[in-house]
């Protein structure tokens, strides 16, 4: 299968601090790629480079066929991004947020409305479309943020800790959404601290101190480190971390 993300020797240096240290990996189209690592391992920095929010110090790479160093604005046309901090407009309604982001990607009003209706109905949230986002509970907000990031049918969706602070039931529903998106051909690039979620990914990478220490399917990693769960794999690798927040 074709690689939608391809990164070689990516490095990001902040002064003397090397947040991302010479990482290389590929992500195939339609894959759910788990990007794991302890706090401060450099996950968010790497995601921000891939999304064109931050400039890499060195290295090469492409996302959706666009060069990460020179075509960051072209990348943005093809990706959806859900950042760690909830960042929909709280003083706009659900539908208004969707109109805004749909409009930004050049969708027509009718198209936005039809798509919003389909997506919100599936979430059983259509009757809340005129609610202000401010009044919506945390779990719903995350599902809504994912819906908005997926509205313009991007080739890749980047999710930075999308299920932080979300209850187990909503997390399960959220992963249902991720799998449906992947089944429809969207590549999902997701970071998480929940190892039960990592087990749901097609492949995972584990970052320690800015470097990728392991990259394979969850099953392969479990057998390679001769443990029973992803949790143990993670602890085996992260134990050696020097950086600690």
């Amino acid at each position: 299968m074709e690689n939608i993300i391809s990164v070689r020797n990516l490095t990001k240096q902040f002064g003397a601090f090397r947040a991302v240290d010479n990482i290389s990996f590929d992500v195939a189209q339609g894959e759910i790629f788990g990007f794991l690592g302890a706090n401060g391992a450099g996950k968010t920095t790497a995601i921000r480079i891939l999304c064109g929010l931050s400039r890499a110090t060195s290295g090469t790479g492409s996302v959706a066929g666009c060069d990460i160093m020179t075509q960051s604005e072209d990348i943005k046309r093809n990706i959806g991004y859900m950042c760690q901090k909830f960042s929909l407009y709280e003083d706009l309604t659900v539908l208004e947020n969707m109109e805004l982001y749909g409009g930004i990607y050049g969708m027509h009003r009718k198209e936005i409305l039809a798509k919003a209706e389909a997506m919100l109905t599936e979430l059983e949230f259509w009757h809340h479309r005129h609610d202000l986002v401010r009044s919506i509970p945390a779990g719903w907000r995350q599902k809504l943020a994912f819906t908005v990031a997926n509205l313009h049918a991007p080739k890749v969706i980047f999710l930075d800790e999308p299920t932080g602070g979300v209850d187990p039931l909503t997390r399960r529903q959220f992963w249902g959404m991720i799998r449906r998106a992947a089944a429809a051909g969207t590549t999902v690039f997701v970071t998480t601290h929940y190892m039960d979620e990592a087990a749901l990914c097609d492949r995972v990478s584990i970052m320690v101190d800015g470097r990728i220490m392991a990259l394979d399917t969850p099953e392969a990693l479990i057998s390679k480190y001769q443990v029973r769960t992803m949790d143990e794999v993670f602890r085996t690798l992260a134990r050696n971390a020097v950086r600690n927040e």
């Binding site: 064109g52 990706i79 960042s87």
Partner: peptide
């Protein structure tokens, strides 16, 4: 301050 600009910056808006 709210962080909403981050979401805008990741879109193709000039």
């Amino acid at each position: 301050e709210l962080g909403t600009i981050e979401q805008i910056n990741v879109t193709p808006v000039s």
